[in-house]
Structures are given as structure tokens and as C-alpha cells.
Design a protein around this nucleic acid. Sequence first.
DNA 1: CAGACGTGAACAAAGCAGAGCTCGTCGAAG
DNA 2: CTTCGACGAGCTCTGCTTTGTTCACGTCTG
Lengths: 213, 213
Amino acid sequence: MNKAELVEALTARLGDKKAATAALDAVLQEIQNAVTKGDRVAITGFGVFEKRVRAARTARNPRTGEAVKVKKTSVPAFRPGAGFRELVAAGKVPKAAAAKKTAAAKKTAAAAPAKTTARSTAAKSTAAKSTATKATATKATATKAATKTATKAATKTAPARKTAAKTTRAASSAPAKRATTARATTAAAAPAKATTTRSRAAATKTTRAAKKA
Amino acid sequence: MNKAELVEALTARLGDKKAATAALDAVLQEIQNAVTKGDRVAITGFGVFEKRVRAARTARNPRTGEAVKVKKTSVPAFRPGAGFRELVAAGKVPKAAAAKKTAAAKKTAAAAPAKTTARSTAAKSTAAKSTATKATATKATATKAATKTATKAATKTAPARKTAAKTTRAASSAPAKRATTARATTAAAAPAKATTTRSRAAATKTTRAAKKA
DNA sequence: CAGACGTGAACAAAGCAGAGCTCGTCGAAG
DNA sequence: CTTCGACGAGCTCTGCTTTGTTCACGTCTG
């Protein structure tokens, strides 16, 4: 399906061809602008368009095999939302969807046994405020911000895995639901390994933090 | 920027809020439908939405470390077009773009020295018709379809690299432009290696072919 | 108020980069 | 409306980079 066909399809929904063209164009333009400015365009159920920064690296010319230096750059990226994903995974449109009758049809997937009950436990009880992990409480909603910060800072409560090799890991807690354990909040995990594997986590984190500001 | 904000921005362009909402919704719906059906939605300058088939594989539960089997699935994917990419790389909107004044500003990049002249040469001279590579001349525009088919079938003319290890590669042809060489049209390349590395090329090809049919 | 999204970690797979050459698609003119 | 001109895009190679996956929980969107 090319642009022309898409416009045609839109015309069927909107009624007017010119309007359809304009609409499509407008949408695309807006998304491009936003992403270019570094904004994240999040459309629930569809997906998220975002600017992704790619660090400088040494790629390789597949033809000659020689290494080439690729300097830092930014590229637009799209991450499909849950709805879109499972729609495509299903392979076929639910039933309608082509029609403007809405319906949507909510089928989701498996039912949740009985997890919700034992919601947040360890987190709350353990720490209360602590000194914030570093860049967390930035804009702090003031209200109940404390709670969340606590959760994140609670880290050291349950070591679980983290730096520990594959051995300790399994033992620390049963697969399915590892007891209380609050997942390691990076900050604590960082100091150890680092360079060895491939510091991806660090980079990612930085980006995220920046965006929040 | 969330959906609401996007609609707001669109309203500025289209004038009517309801229309904006409808338009956005229509566009998203259409794209989802098309992709779900397996169609590729190509919008020049913006990008391409497509359904990507992911083969079954063994992933790993990052929490417990245990390996989990992920069965074959399809996910929606988006590949930004050249225009969008360089726009984002530049980091800032060209000048206008927010305005509906169009303008667009065509700057492109380097000027074309003198390529257009020597367009199709090798292709034409080499083969004339041949028996079509298999699924190429399907809908055949009848007119000059022969030319294209020929090119693809011309494969074996210049073996070049292919199965050859990294050694031969470099020698086969000078870095920049490896003589006439028509890139191996897979069909010929397939028989050799296969399983060793990771038959990605094959898979890709298959997909492509299927789509064309 | 229901539910999608963000976050994180480890390992394996998917993707990406550069460059030539052709085709498809867009814009313009007759 | 039809045809031509121009340009964006696909294909393909190898090896390194980036993404996906699980799972739980808070937050915010719709």
C-alpha cells in the first residue's frame, strides 16, 4: 500500500479526498516535527515515535570489510504499542475495524490468577524516604512522591541477583515470583562490572533521565 | 506529546477539532489494518510500516536467567524514510514546516555529477529476456519489463565474492566499485553455505518474494 | 475507571552500516 | 488526465551494535 492507496482508503472514511490528503499530510508533518524536536509522540494502543540517539561507533563496510567510523547521530524510531502488536500477531483484523462502527472488541488474553492481592509490600515497609537515587525526585509531584522514591531506593533490601553469577540467582528466589525482592535500581548495580559486558544500561538510563527534565 | 496534544496540533492545521480527531483515528486505523493484513504501508519521505515475521527462538527470562522458548510471531515494524531520518539527524526543523505554507525547501545534498547519462548499460547488453528468475515478471507491466528481469537473471555473469571467505572478498574487486558485477541474486548463492552462519539472507529473501506475489 | 506504558537486567537474535544499480513513486507539464 | 523527469527506496554483503524477552508495579492516558 503506497501513499496514494492510503489516501484512497482514508477518503472512504472521511468522505472527502482533498481532506484525506490534507489530513494525512498534517499528521505526518506533525509527527516529524515533534520527533525532530526530540519530543516523544505517544499514541496509546498504537505506538510511540521517538528520537533515538545512537552513539558513535565503528561499523563496517559490508562490501570491502573495512571498518568505518560512524559518528554520533539521531534517528527516528517507532515502538508499536501493545494493542497494535497483538493485532498483528493475531494476523487478522478482529472483525470489523475497516468500518467506522468502532466496537473494538476487548478480548485481551489470559486471566490474572491472584497476584494483585499482595501488591506492594516490601517496598513500603522497608524504606520511607532515603536520599533519592540521584535523578529520581526531580520534578517531584510533591504529593505522594515519597512513596515511589522509596520503592526505587529500597534496592539493597533484597540483593537477589545483580552482580551475582547465574548460580546465586536461581537460589535467591523461586522463578515465578521472587518473594519480596525489589528489582535492583541500577544505581546500586552500576559500580561493579561496568565496562566488561557492554554498558548499555547506563546509556539508556541517561537518556531517559534527560527526557524527564 | 500524547494523543490529545497531537490532536490539538492537528486542529491548528485542519481548523476543526472533530475533524482532526477523526482524521488521526482514521489514519491510524488504516495503517493498522493494512499492516495486520500483511501489507506494507510505504509513505515516501516518511517511512514504511510493515509486518515483520520473527522466527521462533529461545529468549531468556532476564530475571531468573532461565531460557524460555518464544514461538514464531509477527510484529509491526517501522523503518523511517530518508527524509525523516536526516531531518531528525539534523536535530531541528528546517525552518518552517510547522506552518502550512509548504515551501518544503529542497536542499538534498551533493549535486549529481554525470550519472544519469550512463543509466542502464550492462543489464541491457548482457541478457535479453531469459526465463524470469521465478516470481519477478508476475504482473509484468508488459512494456519494458524484460529489461528488469534480465538484470536479475544476469547473476552468474560476475561471481565476485559470495561464499568466498574474507580473503577472496577484498581481492575480487577494488573497494569502491567492483567492476560490472551484478550482485548475487540469492538464488545462485543459496546452495552453498546455508546453515553455517545463520541463514538470514534466505529468510529475508523468502519474505520479499512472498510479498511480491 | 480500565488498561497501556515505563523501568531493568542478561543473553541471543535481529538490525544496521556503506555503496552500486534499478524500480517505484511523486511532482510537473502538456 | 496522461506522460515524462527526478529522486527516494530496495537489495545485498559481513560483523558489530541494538533490540527483544519476563515480570511486577506505579502512573497517566483515554
